[in-house]
Nucleic acid binder design. Structure first.
Length: 476
RNA sequence: GGCCCCAUCGUCUAACGGUUAGGACACCAGGUUUUCAUCCUGGCAAUAGGAGUUCGAUUCUCCUUGGGGUCACCA
C-alpha cells in the first residue's frame, strides 16, 4: 500500500500542448511507478480566462496520449469535487482559520494606490513588497475585499526533487492575496488547500512557480500543513529555443498531433524524452518501460527545445513496428475520400507498400491517391523528370508500347513483374532510372511512388495496362 | 533592476575527477545494380569565457558572460 499521490492541475484556459502534457506525464509516471494515485484537478478560479471546452480539451488530450487518472472531474472519489470552482466553501473555511489566527487580513487599498506604490518601487529600483505597507488596523474582512496572508518573512532552504538544494532569503516572502474580491481564491492559496485536502504527496510542476515556493512554504506554516515534496520541471522551449513553448508561438495542440496521425505511444515516448533519459542510449520506450524506469532524479535541469522533426522521426519508427493489421485498424480515419469504395483487403495491400515510408497517418492522403482513382495525365511530370529529358515523344511512346507488350502476359505478381521489368531493361538497353520513371509516371501520374513492381501489383493488371494506354494516347 | 534557476555538437542528450567527449535527430556523401522513402556505411559538428582546488577537470569552487523564470485581485 503506497501513499504516493500526484496530481496534474491545469487551468481550462487553452488547449494542451507538448509542454503542459509533459508536466502531466511526469506526474503520472511518478504515481504509476510507486503504485500510487494520480489526480486530475481543474483549476478554474480565473473565471475570465476560462474558455469554453477547456476541460474537454484537457480530458481528450490526456486520454489520447494514454494518461489516465484515478480521481478527477469525471471520476468522483473521496477527495472531490475536483474542480476548484466547486470547492469555494473549503477555501473559505481555511481563510477563516487564518483570520482567526491573525494570519490574514482584508486589503482595502485601491488599484491606483497599488500601482503607484509599485511604480515608486520600480523608480527606486527596489522590489515592491506589500508587507512594507501593511495597514495598521485593517477592517474586518467582509468577503468583498481581497484577503491577504499576513506573512512571516524568513529565509528558507528546501530540497527540490529535480533542482536539488534550494534557498531563498526573507525578501522572497510577501503578503500575497489568498482570496480575490470576486470571492474566488488565487492559485497560490487554492492549490495549497487542495493539495493538502487531497493528500497530494508530490507536487510536480513547471518552473514558472519556482520563485513562489518560499511564499508557499510560508503559507504551509501559517496553515499548519506539512509541505509536500516538490519537483520543478525545466521549461520546454519553442523552436527558436528562446521562449517557453506556447500556443501563441505556434505550438501545436496535442489534439492536432492526433489529427495528423501521430501515434499516442510515439507522442508519449517523445514527450518523456523532453528533459529525461534513463542514462543509456535507449530512445524507444514503451509505456510500461517508462513507468518502470522513470525517475525525477534523472530529469534535466535546463530547458529543452521542442523539435517537431524529432517527433515525426520517432513516429515513423513506431509506424514501421506495427503489424499490417494494427496499422490498418489505426489508420481507418485517414483514408482519402476516394478510398471509400475499396475493401479492406485492397487497403491492406496499399498499406503494405507504403508502410515504410509513412511518417504520420495523415500522409496517406498524399501518398496513395493513384491507388484509388485515375489521375489526369500530367505532362509536366515527364518534362521535369531528370531521367527522361533526353528522350523525345516517339521514343517514350515506343518504350511504353514495348512495356505493354511485355506485361500483357504477366500475372502481375510482384515476382513476375520484377522479372518482366528487368528483362525489359535488357531488351531495350535502358537504365532503370529512365524506363522505370516512365512507367511509374504512366501508371501513377506521380513523381514518386512505392516500388514499381509493388505498386503495379497492387493496382492490378487491368488498371495498370489501361493507364499505360492512356499515357500512350496522350503522347500521340 | 531585486530575487531564483540554468549552461556539452544546430537540436535532444550520455560521460564514479582519468573517454580519441559517446548516441540520436537534422544536414552532407556513398551503398542497397528503379524514383521517393526505408535501411546500411561514412562525414560534419560541442564542454560559453576566466581564475582556483587537484597529479589530472565536461565533472568540484568562485567570478564574468549568456539564457530563462518571477516580482498580478493569471495560473
Amino acid at each position: 500500500m503506497s501513499s504516493v499521490r500526484t496530481r496534474f492541475a491545469p487551468s481550462p484556459t487553452g488547449a494542451l500542448h507538448a509542454g503542459t502534457v509533459r508536466t502531466a506525464l511526469f506526474a503520472w509516471l511518478v504515481a504509476k511507478k510507486a503504485n500510487g494515485q494520480f489526480v486530475l484537478r481543474i483549476e478554474d478560479t480565473d473565471q475570465a480566462r476560462s474558455i469554453e471546452g477547456g476541460v474537454k480539451n484537457i480530458i481528450d488530450s490526456l486520454s489520447f496520449i494514454g494518461i489516465d487518472w484515478d480521481e478527477g472531474p469525471n471520476k468522483p472519489s473521496d477527495f472531490g469535487p475536483y474542480v476548484q470552482s466547486e470547492r469555494l466553501d473549503k477555501y473559505q473555511e481555511f481563510a477563516q482559520k487564518l483570520i482567526k489566527s491573525g494570519r490574514a487580513y482584508a486589503d482595502v487599498s485601491t488599484k491606483d494606490e497599488l500601482d503607484k506604490l509599485r511604480e515608486n518601487a520600480k523608480q527606486s529600483k527596489k522590489p515592491f513588497l506589500f508587507r512594507d505597507y501593511r495597514p495598521e488596523n485593517p477592517p474586518v474582512w467582509n468577503g468583498s475585499q481581497p484577503l491577504r496572508l499576513m506573512s512571516n518573512p524568513k529565509p528558507y532552504e528546501w530540497n527540490d526533487l529535480v533542482m536539488g538544494k534550494m534557498k531563498s532569503g526573507a525578501e522572497a516572502i510577501d503578503d500575497f492575496i489568498l482570496i480575490k474580491s470576486d470571492g474566488f481564491p488565487t492559485y497560490n492559496f487554492a492549490h495549497i488547500v487542495d493539495d493538502f485536502l487531497m493528500k497530494v504527496t508530490h507536487v510536480i510542476r513547471s518552473q514558472e512557480f519556482i520563485s513562489s515556493v518560499p511564499r508557499f512554504l510560508n503559507l504551509y506554516e501559517a496553515l499548519g500543513f506539512e509541505a509536500p515534496k516538490m519537483a520543478t520541471l525545466p521549461p520546454v522551449l519553442d523552436t527558436t529555443g528562446k521562449r517557453k513553448l506556447s500556443k501563441r508561438e505556434g505550438a501545436k495542440q496535442v489534439l492536432e498531433y492526433r489529427d495528423m496521425g501521430i501515434m499516442p505511444e510515439a507522442l508519449m515516448n517523445f514527450v518523456a524524452l523532453l528533459g529525461w533519459n534513463d542514462g543509456t542510449t535507449q530512445e524507444i520506450f514503451s509505456k510500461e518501460e517508462l513507468i518502470q524506469k522513470f525517475d525525477l532524479s534523472r530529469v534535466q535541469k535546463g530547458g529543452a527545445q521542442f523539435r517537431e522533426d524529432q517527433l515525426i522521426f520517432l513516429n515513423g519508427v513506431y509506424i514501421r513496428k506495427l503489424s499490417l493489421d494494427e496499422l490498418h485498424s489505426r489508420v481507418s480515419d485517414f483514408w482519402p475520400e476516394s478510398a471509400t469504395e475499396f475493401d479492406d483487403d485492397y487497403k491492406k495491400k496499399v498499406l503494405s507498400v507504403i508502410q515504410e515510408r509513412l511518417k504520420y497517418f495523415s500522409e496517406i492522403t498524399e501518398l496513395t491517391p493513384f491507388f484509388f482513382k485515375d489521375l489526369p495525365v500530367d505532362m509536366k511530370l515527364i518534362d521535369e523528370n531528370k531521367f527522361l529529358k533526353s528522350l523525345d515523344k516517339s521514343q517514350l511512346k515506343e518504350l511504353l508500347n514495348k512495356t505493354k507488350a511485355s506485361l500483357v502476359s504477366s500475372d502481375f505478381s510482384v515476382e513476375d513483374l520484377t522479372y518482366k521489368l528487368n528483362n525489359l531493361l535488357t531488351e531495350q538497353d535502358q537504365k532503370p532510372a529512365v524506363l522505370f520513371s516512365l512507367i511509374r509516371i504512366a501508371t501513377t501520374q506521380a513523381a514518386s511512388s512505392p516500388g514499381l513492381a509493388d505498386t503495379m501489383s497492387v493496382l492490378g493488371k487491368e488498371k495498370s495496362i489501361a493507364r499505360i494506354d492512356t499515357m500512350i494516347n496522350a503522347l500521340s
